[in-house]
Design a protein around this nucleic acid. Structure first.
Length: 444
DNA sequence: TCTGGGGTCCTAGGACCC
DNA sequence: TCTGGGGTCCTAGGACCC
């Protein structure tokens, strides 16, 4: 059934104006904030620099580093092959010295070098907080997708004629306040705005007006569509679908055969059909911690790691005020076999010991060759408020149809094995009853 | 391409309920 | 009891995203 209206219209039929903001090379940009000398130099921010954290991969590479073949998610070792570490012990000679620049392409005979830095989330979060301040002030509704990316509903804040100025102003304010550059896409749908922000990176500014969505998308590669990764891109190509226009022309049923419900969605996105409204991120569905072992291992070292991760994930849940009803483990066996096991408990709990016991138990179930990496996860979360005046037990399941049902459930659960003693323990909550009800509604 | 850590959503079979 | 239909929850795995 053809849609008579333009994509991304509000209930009143007005096109939404959605901005997608994506900070350029966020981690690397943050490092340059503290080390301005790194401006213009290849910067690689990698995980796995701590002595106990082996291997490591590139989290963010600056554009200068990318020019030398360093890619996101690449093993640090590989990155070092194409871009050796700068000799920073004597870095006075390399940095800021007029004659001897390490700048890209300036001296082809010279071996280019990169500046490698470990991830420092705390610092990046402080920068992200500055960005958020700007975004908060610019949007009717803000959806923060990740530390460096957000959607803004700016329908009431600007017009299509002023959208480019608005976006430019937004970029300027972000640079002013946080010291980083952003790429911004403005479009009548979330999916088009996302692609638009990516279209002219870095420091991009692309506005796609309501009538232009289809023509903007048409020539792009299918891989540019959110939700098309390497696997689906390959399958689409096998089907003769290479551009977004091809995808838009495809038979939705055919794609549904291949990709399930996602297939239909992809065709809609390719056609510019996307009526999602910008909504703030909800509460997390799961929390996890995982880490790689120095060398593939079995037995006690693996169990010890699982214990550490279990404690960490339980701690994370407690700090977020989350109760969990399901505990799971993940075991990665080289080359890249991922095994997961999970077990649901009889009621939502905050119980680090139980997380550990369950995780170790599940670990036993995965009889395995030496493992490269392990993870512990809690899910089936419910968020509670420790209001001592309220029987002290707001551990009701927030997914219950009736917000009040959770309370009764929790009481009943106390009679069930595995829950009672734990469900009532030390709670640290952050949410209110009002939030609790909202969650219950939102989960429908 | 064979790599880190933290997430989301979808699928599909089985158990179980009415 | 051997045959219908509808629904939910649980679990394992997969693709994808940043």
């Amino acid at each position: 059934v053809p849609n008579a209206t333009l994509p991304g219209t509000t209930e009143e039929g007005e096109p939404q104006i959605i901005a997608h903001v994506d900070i350029d090379c966020f981690y690397a940009a943050c490092e340059r904030l503290r080390e301005p000398e790194l401006e213009g130099e290849p910067v690689v921010v990698g995980m796995g620099y701590e002595p106990d954290d082996p291997g490591g991969a590139v989290a963010t590479a600056s554009y200068e580093a990318r020019e030398h073949g360093v890619e996101s998610a690449q093993p640090i070792e590989e990155a070092l092959e194409v871009l050796p570490r700068a000799a920073e012990a004597e870095s006075d000679a390399g940095l800021g010295d007029e004659g001897e620049s390490n700048g890209v392409g300036e001296s082809p005979d010279e071996q280019p070098v990169g500046y490698y830095r470990p991830v420092d989330m705390e610092f990046y979060e402080s920068v992200a907080a500055d960005v958020k301040t700007v975004l908060d002030g610019a949007a009717d509704t803000l959806r923060e997708v990740s530390i460096d990316e957000a959607y803004l509903d700016v329908t009431e804040r600007t017009t299509w004629d002023e959208a480019a100025d608005f976006a430019g102003d937004l970029k300027a304010r972000i640079a002013d306040r946080a010291g980083v550059t952003a790429s911004v896409g403005v479009a009548p749908t979330m999916s088009a705005a996302k692609i638009a922000s990516d279209h002219d990176k870095p420091d991009g500014l692309v506005v796609v007006r309501p009538g232009e969505v289809a023509s903007f998308l048409a020539p792009l590669d299918v891989a540019d569509v959110h939700g098309v990764g390497p696997v689906r891109a390959g399958e689409l190509r096998d089907m003769g679908i290479e551009t977004v226009a091809d995808l838009a022309d495809a038979d939705p049923d055919r794609l549904a055969d291949h990709f399930g419900s996602r297939g239909r969605e992809l065709v809609e996105r390719a056609r510019g059909d996307d009526d999602r409204a910008v909504e703030p991120m909800g509460r997390p569905e799961s929390l996890s911690r995982e880490s790689a072992l120095a060398d593939p291992a079995t037995g006690e070292p693996v169990r010890e790691r699982v214990q550490t991760l279990a404690a960490a994930v339980a701690d994370r849940a407690r700090r977020k005020g989350a109760l969990y009803r399901t505990v799971g483990v993940k075991v990665v066996v080289p080359p890249f076999d991922i095994n997961t096991r999970e077990r649901s408990l009889s009621g939502p709990v905050d119980d680090p010991d139980l997380v550990e016991r369950t995780a170790l138990d599940l670990l036993e179930e995965v009889d395995s060759a030496p493992v490269r990496k392990v993870g512990v996860r809690v899910s089936n979360l419910s968020f509670t408020d420790r209001d001592q005046g309220q029987l002290g037990q707001w551990e009701g399941d927030a997914t219950a149809e009736d917000p009040t049902a959770g309370v009764a459930t929790a009481v009943n659960d106390s009679a069930v094995e595995g829950s009672g003693p734990h469900a009532r323990r030390d709670r640290v909550g952050q949410t209110t009853l009002f939030d609790f009800i909202e969650v219950a509604r939102g989960s429908d």
